[in-house]
Amino acid sequence: MPRTTDGDGVPVPQRLLAAATRLFAGQGYDRTSVQEIVEAAGVTKGALYHYFGSKEDLLQEIYARMLRLQQDRLDGFADAEAPVERRLRDAAADVVVTTIENLDDAAIFQRSMHQLSPEKNKQVRAERRRYHERFRALVEEGQAAGVFSTATPADLVVDYHFGSVHHLPTWYRADGPLTPQEIADHLADLLLRALRP
């Protein structure tokens, strides 16, 4: 049975994910070998195959962990006792901040999702769709209440915002003039302005 932690107490699955994320982001999924991942993580191939069935499973988990984080946070905003404008704005800003905080994960997903098997690709798309549907429900709630304009269908509103979010890995720089929160605030405010009746 492989060790569950290293000498520093870091669980082996987290070590493997951290190493794979660094390598996939730096040199690409297809150009990274299992051997490079296990060497970078300081574990054996047996440990990798114990926790993840394959390199592809690592790729899937890199994106799935970010999506789980974002889904949990979105659920919290959506379920809050606050006006729908506040809940949507908070959710819209949060997805920008959490994407920037996990920029390597987002970039890997954009570049490498097509390399997942059809079954894994379908699973990831279903999880992402669930997120987008919950976000869309906030838009629809505001539209039904007359708080948001109905001139643009809710689906297009969601696509508009997430087009910006999915594009972050191509232009965001940590040394840029705006902080992640400032970028998030600008994009969330743009969304709310577009929805004004």
Score class of each variant (00 low, 15 high):
H132Q: 15
Q123L: 14
F109M: 10
G46V: 11
A126K: 14
K120D: 13
K45W: 10
I37C: 04
Q27K: 14
F52M: 03
A41L: 10
S54G: 11
T152Y: 11
Y172A: 07
A145I: 05
L195F: 05
S112Q: 07
G53D: 10
L67R: 09
G26H: 07
S149Q: 04
E127Q: 13
R111I: 01
D79T: 05
L191V: 00
G42H: 03
Q70F: 10
R89M: 00
L116V: 03
Q71N: 09
T44M: 08
D90C: 04
L59Y: 08
A82Q: 12
G46R: 11
Q143D: 02
A19M: 14
V38N: 03
V97Y: 06
R89E: 03
I100L: 14
G7D: 10
D72G: 14
A184E: 03
E101M: 09
L58E: 12
A20S: 14
R129W: 09
R136D: 02
R136E: 08
V10Y: 02
D90I: 00
R3S: 13
V38Q: 06
E182R: 15
R65G: 07
Q14F: 09
L156C: 05
G46S: 12
V12K: 04
A40P: 08
A107F: 08
V97H: 01
D79I: 01
L48W: 11
V147I: 11
E140G: 02
Q110R: 15
F77E: 05
F148G: 00
V12A: 02
V165P: 10
G142A: 04
A47V: 05
S54W: 11
H166W: 15
Y172W: 15
G163I: 04
P2T: 05
P2W: 08
E101K: 05
T32L: 09
G9N: 03
